[in-house]
Amino acid sequence: MDVFMKGLSKAKEGVVAAAEKTKQGVAEAAGKTKEGVLYVGSKTKEGVVHGVATVAEKTKEQVTNVGGAVVTGVTAVAQKTVEGAGSIAAATGFVKKDQLGKNEEGAPQEGILEDMPVDPDNEAYEMPSEEGYQDYEPEA
């Protein structure tokens, strides 16, 4: 019985440690998101679009440190934060509304985080759909 109880105690310690790591990862992701939003706020009209992409990228980098179902929630929060940063930029006159959601080359930025393969159960990952990809044929 002692062996059984000791095993359960060790398992509990492992769960607590994993929860603490997840909590730490979420806190880091939130900190990076805040950094990115402050970065966007300090940019001029020309830099705002690039700044919004930076927020998304920093958040995406930190999301990889967070495991399990938390990833889905962090990704949703990050996307809403990026959308909010863009709205703030438009409201303050840093950028025109028609410039939001495009990178410096004018290509749409939507789907940055949505296409990231995420499995809350950590069982399997699927690649994003290939609808947006084109076949590449090298020139002879």
Rank of each mutant, 00 (worst) to 15 (best):
V37Q: 00
A124W: 10
V55E: 00
K43T: 04
E137S: 09
V48G: 01
Y39W: 10
A29I: 15
K32L: 15
K10D: 01
M127P: 04
V49K: 12
G68E: 13
E139L: 05
E139G: 07
G7R: 15
D135L: 10
E105T: 13
A91I: 06
V26A: 02
G14W: 05
G36A: 11
F4W: 04
V77C: 11
K23I: 02
A17W: 12
A53I: 12
V77A: 07
E46G: 07
V77N: 01
I88M: 08
A30T: 06
E35G: 05
T64A: 08
G93V: 04
A90Q: 14
G93P: 05
V55M: 10
L100F: 02
T59K: 01
N65C: 09
K80W: 15
E139A: 10
N103A: 05
G47E: 04
T22L: 05
Q109H: 13
G93T: 05
G93L: 09
T64Q: 09
K97W: 15
K96M: 14
K32R: 10
E110R: 10
K10P: 00
E110D: 12
E105D: 11
G36D: 02
T92K: 03
K97A: 09
P128V: 03
K97S: 09
E57I: 12
G31A: 08
K43P: 00
Q79G: 04
N122Q: 08
G41C: 11
T72I: 07
V74S: 01
S42Q: 12
E105W: 02
G93Q: 04
Q79I: 09
E61H: 04
A30L: 13
L38A: 04
K102C: 08
T54E: 03
E83M: 11
G73M: 15
S87D: 09
I112W: 07
K21S: 09
K34F: 14
A27M: 15
E61C: 06
F4I: 08
A124Q: 04
Q134V: 03
P128T: 07
D98N: 08
K97R: 13
Q99W: 15
L113Y: 10
G84Q: 09
E110V: 08
M5V: 08
V16D: 01
Q134S: 09
K97M: 07
V70G: 01
A124C: 14
L100T: 08
V71D: 01
K12G: 02
V52A: 09
S42F: 11
T22S: 06
Y39N: 04
K10H: 04
G41P: 00
K12C: 13
E35D: 11
V15H: 01
G36M: 15
G51H: 11
L100V: 09
E130W: 10
V66Q: 01
Q134W: 08
K58T: 07
K34G: 02
E139N: 09
K80D: 02
A76I: 13
V40M: 11
D115Y: 10
A76C: 10
E83D: 06
A89P: 03
V37L: 14
A69N: 05
V40I: 11
A56K: 09
K45A: 12
D121W: 05
T54V: 14
G31Y: 13
A78G: 05
V52W: 15
K34V: 15
A17E: 06
V70P: 01
E28H: 06
N122M: 09
G47P: 02
V40T: 01
T81Y: 14
K60H: 04
V55Q: 01
Y136Q: 09
H50C: 10
G132Q: 12
E105L: 09
Q24M: 15
G106Q: 06
T81N: 02
A85S: 04
K43M: 15
P128L: 11
A53M: 13
D135T: 08
T33H: 01
K97G: 12
V52I: 04
E110M: 08
V48A: 04
G14C: 12
V63H: 01
E137P: 04
K97Y: 02
M116C: 08
G73A: 15
A85C: 10
V63R: 02
E105P: 04
E105K: 02
G14A: 15
K34R: 04
E123I: 10
V16Q: 04
Y125C: 08
V118C: 11
K32W: 15
Q79V: 07
K32Y: 12
G84D: 03
K60C: 06
V95D: 05
T75G: 07
K97E: 05
E110L: 12
D115G: 14
N122A: 04
Q109D: 11
D2P: 01
E131T: 10
A19M: 07
K60G: 03
E20D: 07
G84N: 10
S87N: 12
E105Q: 11
Q109E: 13
E28A: 06
K23F: 15
G93Y: 08
A91E: 05
M116G: 03
G106S: 13
E20L: 13
K12R: 13
D121P: 09
M1D: 00
Y133D: 10
A53V: 14
K21Y: 12
S87C: 10
G31T: 08
K45D: 00
A76G: 06
K34L: 05
D135M: 09
K97F: 14
A124T: 02
M5N: 02
K96A: 11
D121I: 08
T33K: 00
T33A: 05
G106R: 06
V26K: 00
A89R: 07
V40H: 02
I88R: 03
T22M: 11
E131M: 02
F94Y: 06
G132D: 14
D2L: 14
E110K: 06
V82D: 01
T92V: 12
G106C: 09
T92A: 09
T72S: 11
N103L: 08
S42D: 03
N103W: 13
A27I: 15
I112M: 06
G67R: 14
E131A: 13
E137M: 05
P138D: 07
Q99S: 13
G106Y: 12
A30E: 00
T72M: 15
G101Y: 13
E114K: 08
A17D: 02
I112T: 07
K96W: 15
A17K: 11
E28D: 05
Q134E: 05
G31Q: 13
V71Q: 03
P120M: 08
A69E: 02
Q99I: 11
M127W: 05
P117R: 04
E83C: 05
A19R: 02
V71R: 09
E110T: 12
L100P: 12
G73F: 08
G86F: 14
K45W: 15
A30H: 02
G25L: 13
T44K: 01
Y39R: 09
V55F: 09
K43C: 13
E35I: 14
E137L: 07
E137V: 05
T72Y: 04
V70W: 15
E57L: 09
K45M: 15
V71P: 01
K80R: 10
V26P: 00
Q24G: 03
K60R: 10
G67P: 02
E104W: 05
V37M: 08
G41N: 03
G73C: 14
K34D: 00
A91V: 11
K10Q: 04
A107R: 09
G14D: 02
V82A: 12
A107V: 10
K58S: 06
N65V: 11
A30S: 03
L8R: 00
N103C: 07
T59C: 10
A85G: 06
G132E: 11
T72E: 15
K21H: 03
P108G: 03
G14Y: 08
G86C: 14
A140E: 09
S42W: 15
G51I: 14
Q99N: 13
K6C: 03
H50I: 03
V66R: 04
V26E: 00
E83F: 09
V55P: 01
D2K: 02
V74K: 01
A19F: 15
E110P: 11
T81A: 12
Q134P: 09
Y136V: 10
E46Q: 06
V63S: 02
A76H: 09
E104C: 02
G68T: 12
A19L: 15
V63E: 01
L100K: 05
Q79L: 12
D135A: 05
L8G: 00
A19V: 10
K21F: 15
A69H: 10
